[in-house]
Amino acid sequence: MPTPARTRSKGLMAASLALLGALGGQCLLCRQGSRTRLCEACIGTARQAADRDRAARCETCALPLRAAASLRCARCRRQPPALDHCLAALDYAHPWDRLLLDFKFNARPQLARPLAELMLDLSSPATRPDLLCCVPLSRERMAERGYNQSHELARRLAGPLGLPYAPRLLRRLPGPVQSRLDAAQRRREVQGAFLLSPGQAARARGACITVVDDVMTTGATLDEVARTLKRAGAREVRAWVLMRAT
């Protein structure tokens, strides 16, 4: 039978845990006390940087522009991608990159909600699509990881933004892990890697579609997704990415 002292100790422990849960503990980024997983200061800093940099990025690949008067980088002018437009919430850089690695490779899907909040500002009346979809994982990669990080972000954007979401619009065929390939290998291996899912043709035809992805590195994956959707009749294909590697 528990003693009164032990009962009080358990009660204090439970109260402490409840208080920590209510307060949210620490910000995952700056480690300061926060009621949410990412504190308002860190989110505010990220949004200010994104707003400041957005006009100085290529409209189709989201890389920083060297010529301020241009809308597209030299490469996109020379070889126009299938992707019509791309917006990135953050650069893939310290300290945000470690959150993405945790989210993607360390089985922490709960990070999707605070990270998706950083992407909400990518939507505007001018960039509002008819349909939202995500970059799919192959069946093998899905079984290995347990969840699709792009889907976890997209579904948390669709609700707050009031956008139709088609999580099964596309299928991905088996292939090598992209993070292990260089730029030329990525472009080669991703060719023909995506298919429109059965019964989805009507949703794609004539639609302006925004594809959600966690990180854009070379742009090869999103460009192949755009090419696949346009072959299916999509009018325009855009992308919202959490982070852009520069």
Rank of each mutant, 00 (worst) to 15 (best):
M1W: 10
P2V: 13
T3D: 13
A5E: 15
S9Y: 06
S9A: 15
K10W: 13
L12E: 15
S16G: 03
S16P: 00
A18T: 15
L20I: 07
L20F: 14
L23F: 09
G25I: 08
L29Q: 02
Q32P: 01
S34G: 10
S34C: 12
R35W: 14
T36Y: 09
R37N: 10
R37T: 11
L38E: 14
L38G: 13
I43N: 00
T45P: 03
Q48R: 14
Q48V: 12
A50P: 07
A50Y: 03
R52S: 05
D53E: 15
E59N: 00
T60M: 05
A62C: 02
P64E: 02
L65G: 06
A69Q: 08
R72H: 14
A74Y: 04
R78I: 02
R78P: 04
P80T: 08
A82G: 05
A82F: 10
A82N: 08
D84N: 11
C86H: 06
A88S: 08
L99N: 02
L100C: 04
K104H: 00
N106Q: 07
L111W: 11
A112Q: 15
A112Y: 12
L115E: 06
L120W: 07
S123G: 06
S124C: 06
S124T: 05
P125R: 00
T127G: 04
P129D: 01
D130Y: 09
L131E: 02
C133G: 02
V135H: 09
V135A: 11
R139H: 15
R139D: 15
E140I: 00
M142D: 12
M142R: 14
E144R: 05
N148F: 10
Q149N: 07
E152Y: 11
R155S: 07
R156L: 12
A158S: 09
L161W: 09
L163G: 10
L163Q: 10
L163V: 08
R168S: 11
G175P: 05
P176C: 04
R180F: 03
D182L: 01
A183T: 01
A183I: 01
Q185S: 08
R186W: 13
R187L: 15
R187V: 14
G192D: 06
F194L: 02
F194A: 01
S197E: 15
G199F: 02
Q200C: 09
I209H: 13
T210V: 13
V211E: 00
D214F: 01
V215N: 01
M216H: 01
T218S: 12
L222Q: 02
L222G: 03
D223G: 06
D223K: 05
E224L: 10
R227L: 15
L229M: 11
K230D: 11
R231A: 13
G233F: 08
A234K: 09
R238I: 07
V241S: 07
